[in-house]
């Protein structure tokens, strides 16, 4: 837990917002006509993003049936799975780079995957923590189904962030915020990942949601879904009335998409992701 808390504390004291890029572990697969595709080393991506302005990096664990993800991330997950990515492989890869990077690492993982791990969710969280993950988001475990997961994260010394949606009523927002550790994840809109959130809505509607969360917790607030540009990042972290006044902006689909495009052009996806993250960090 200390790493993520320290990172947000440092950003707050510098009066700066934080950028939280999201990547899909193992994507894009390394394709070489001579051999079978293999998952990309996520460690390379993490190293590249660490120096490019990412405070916390979300690592998405590929799942065959991600119901909250749009076409870009769902397709990336399927490609990574076909190339053979596994949770155990992700853990090994992340453990190899953890000592060399400063950024916080958050695992974004479906309860389905955690459930199947030998030793169940508790064993999964413990193994991820040993590999160097600092926190968890289980996007398909709402408050009602989070009890065991939250306990496992606490015992492993990791943070657990639940989602707040535009459809969550105020009393529920308070309960969700109260159950989070590390930071609270506010969804900028309904729908799936990878669809733009109109900038006008960020300062207004999303700002209201951030304010509502702040009423029940001092934890940092991160906003994600539909954040695609440096301007969007600016709108998320700028103080009201110009922005939503959040602590961090989460950016996923555009980074995943850029990595896929660069790989298909024969370029290095890690550098492409780093360049995009540096550009996005310009909005902080």
């Amino acid at each position: 837990m200390p790493r993520i808390e320290d990172i947000f504390a440092e950003r707050r004291s510098a009066k700066k917002g934080a950028l939280m890029p999201f990547v899909v572990a193992g994507y894009p697969p390394v394709k070489n006509p001579a051999v079978k595709p293999r998952p990309m080393a996520t460690s390379e991506v993490l190293a590249a993003l660490d120096g490019a302005g990412a405070s916390v990096i979300e690592v998405g664990f590929p799942f065959s049936d991600p119901i909250a993800d749009g076409p870009v991330i769902a397709a990336a997950m399927h490609e990574a799975l076909e190339a053979g990515v596994t949770p155990a492989g992700i853990f090994d890869d992340v453990a190899s780079i953890r000592p060399f990077i400063k950024a916080g690492l958050v695992a974004m993982v479906s309860v389905s995957i955690a459930w199947r791990w030998a030793g169940g969710p508790r064993g999964f969280v413990a193994a991820a923590a040993r590999a160097g993950f600092d926190g968890f988001i289980f996007p398909d475990a709402p408050l009602e189904e989070s009890g065991e997961l939250l306990g496992a994260c606490r015992d492993a010394g990791c943070t657990a962030s639940l989602l707040v949606a535009p459809t969550s009523p105020p009393e529920r927002v308070a309960a969700i915020a109260g159950a989070c550790t590390g930071f609270v994840y506010v969804l900028a809109r309904t729908g799936i990942t990878g669809q733009a959130t109109p900038q006008g809505e960020v300062a207004g509607r999303v700002g209201e949601a951030v304010k509502l969360v702040r009423r029940s917790t001092d934890l940092p607030v991160a906003v994600g879904f539909g954040i695609t540009s440096a301007q969007d990042v600016r709108a998320v972290v700028a103080p009201p009335p110009a922005g939503a006044g959040a602590d961090a902006a989460i950016v996923g689909s555009v980074i995943v998409k850029r990595m896929g495009e660069s790989a298909s052009r024969g370029q290095d996806p890690s550098s492409a992701a780093a360049a995009l993250v540096a550009e996005l960090a310009g909005g902080l």
């Binding site: 996007p139 398909d140 989602l163 949606a165 969700i176």
Partner: peptide, 20 residues
């Protein structure tokens, strides 16, 4: 009331759908 049939069932969905 939590939607459990013994250990089975439940409501494993993103927060967005909980209100519905």
């Amino acid at each position: 009331p939590q939607g459990r049939f013994g250990a089975f069932g439940g409501m494993y969905v993103p927060e967005t759908l909980v209100a519905a």
